[in-house]
Design a protein around this nucleic acid. Structure first.
Length: 221
DNA sequence: ACCCAGGGTCATA
DNA sequence: TATGACCATGGG
């Protein structure tokens, strides 16, 4: 059943979720390249598994492009094994490396306009819309909203418009509310993920909480 | 023993 | 456009 009140806007969600969980200081990485690697490794995978893979890469100094490129393909796959889909993801990381080299590195990419940069990222095999937007927002600090499965579930339960529309439509609808506020876009996605991971009964998160009845489990009627 | 996780690609209809 | 199969590990 849908809430009988109007669905909360994004600023309200930020205030409420932020009061309870935040600030979250995303993305958990030290460099732009590490953000890109993490964005690929976390595809359909729990972050705890990604942390092991990242640690295994750090052990052999493979968290920068040259260091990763120096690894044999088999060793790269072996290092990231804990993150799952390790053969697929090893290929994707190598596509990323080739892309960075062709384009003159991260510094050169940073000169591109956001739309051009997104198009370029989507041209890399293994980088789809969500991964591209993770990279745009958290590695290049561009004003982009990242849509993921948690976002769809939450928005659907809140009765927000476009919850079931295509990726681009949903993304643009949020960006229309938050404008070019990179800090807000950063925090909102992080908070939605953090809240989505909770396995809890619905409870109020803030004063007059608009999603007190919306948690990971079924929405009580 | 199941279900899911901070997706994406490819083949098919 | 829209499903379905596939990729794979680790925690609840």
């Amino acid at each position: 059943m849908e809430p009988d009140t109007a669905p909360p806007d994004c600023r309200t969600l930020l205030r409420c979720l932020g009061a309870y969980y935040g600030p979250l200081h995303w993305w958990p990485a030290e460099t732009a390249f590490e953000v890109m690697v993490g964005a690929i490794l976390t595809q359909n995978t729990a972050w705890t598994n990604v942390e092991r893979a990242i640690a295994a890469l750090r052990e052999v100094d493979a968290l920068h492009p040259a260091g990763m490129a120096a690894l044999a393909p088999e060793e790269l796959a072996e290092r990231i094994r804990p993150s799952g889909y390790f053969n697929v993801k090893a290929d994707r990381l190598r596509h990323l490396l080739a892309f960075l080299q062709e384009r003159g590195g991260i510094e050169a990419l940073a000169n591109l306009e956001t739309g051009a940069l997104r198009t370029a990222l989507l041209g890399v095999k293994g980088i789809g819309p969500e991964t591209a937007d993770d990279i745009l927002l958290y590695a290049f600090h561009r004003p982009v909203f990242v849509v993921d499965a948690y976002t769809r579930r939450l928005f659907e339960r809140l009765g927000r418009p476009h919850a079931r529309d295509g990726y681009e439509t949903l993304r643009v609808s949020v960006e229309a509310e938050l404008g070019t506020d990179v800090a807000a876009l950063n925090e909102l996605h992080a908070l939605i993920v953090e809240h989505g991971k909770q396995r809890c009964r619905p409870r109020p998160l803030c004063d007059g909480c608009p999603l007190a009845r919306v948690c990971r489990g079924a929405v009580p009627e």
